[in-house]
Amino acid sequence: MSERITTAQGREIAYHLTPGAGPAVVFLGGFRSDMSGTKALHLEAWARSAGRAFLRFDYSGHGESGGVFEDGTIGDWAEDASAALDLVEGPAVLVGSSMGGWISCLLGRDRPGKVAGLVTIAAAPDFTEDGYWAGFDAAQRAALEREGVVHVPSDYGAPYPITARLIAEGRRRLVLRSPLRFGCPVRMLQGTADTAVSTETALRLLDHAEAPDIRLTLVKGADHRFSAPAELALIERSVIDVLDLI
């Protein structure tokens, strides 16, 4: 059973913390995903076998945490992630998947003393602006202004409700329009068959970010889930690579 904390903003966050040696590894999930996904559970099993501290959690409005998904924004979920990060002792290695990659960039930039390394998986920086808003036609933009929400088809089930607040607040959290500097090693993983996040996005983040040691690995044929056995093994190796540099 998950444990729970209440953030400074009053949101209830569910989490699982595996005790072990530091630096801890913290998994940040994607948009509308939860902490029981394949990648999070694989890393938890690896951490347990390695005696490594590991944390997985749900943003508000996701999974087992409190709140309503439609009420949330990138900034809210970044605050949730920052509160979760304080559950582990000392600096941590963040593993951010999709939206979690964006949020890990925010934490790596804004909390350098707490972030010892970054591993991103199909990172989706600025997706509210460059993905949803840029892809909306005139009718969708008008509906967003009129109704405050539009529903966008998803490959993962029911359509996603995209709110005007999510788009507007996301503009305050963009990371590709201003300097993005990390004082830690960074490993980025990206599949070439990903239809949600393009290879061009990964290359743009690689070109834009600054770090003492930053590398991008492209995996031919891998999709956005990045959860095949060979891909999970690559995530694990990337985490170990970063830990070895700390």
Rank of each mutant, 00 (worst) to 15 (best):
E3P: 00
E3R: 13
A8K: 11
Q9Y: 06
G10M: 09
I13S: 06
H16V: 14
H16E: 15
L17Q: 04
V25D: 04
F27G: 02
F27Q: 05
L28N: 07
K39W: 12
L41V: 13
A45I: 03
A47H: 09
F54E: 04
L55H: 01
R56K: 15
E70S: 13
W77E: 14
E79F: 00
A81F: 07
V88S: 05
E89Y: 00
G90S: 07
P91A: 12
V93E: 03
G96Y: 02
S97C: 06
G100N: 08
S104R: 04
G108K: 09
R109Q: 13
V119P: 01
T120Y: 04
I121C: 06
E129C: 02
D130E: 14
Y132Q: 04
A134Y: 01
A134C: 03
G135I: 04
E147H: 15
V149I: 15
Y156K: 10
Y156A: 11
A158D: 15
P161G: 08
G170W: 02
R172V: 00
R173C: 15
R173E: 14
V175Y: 02
L180K: 09
L180G: 08
G183K: 02
V186C: 02
A193K: 07
A193T: 05
A196H: 07
A196L: 13
E200K: 05
E200S: 14
L203D: 09
A222K: 01
D223F: 01
S227N: 15
S227C: 13
P229T: 09
P229V: 09
A230D: 14
A233S: 14
S238Y: 11
S238R: 06
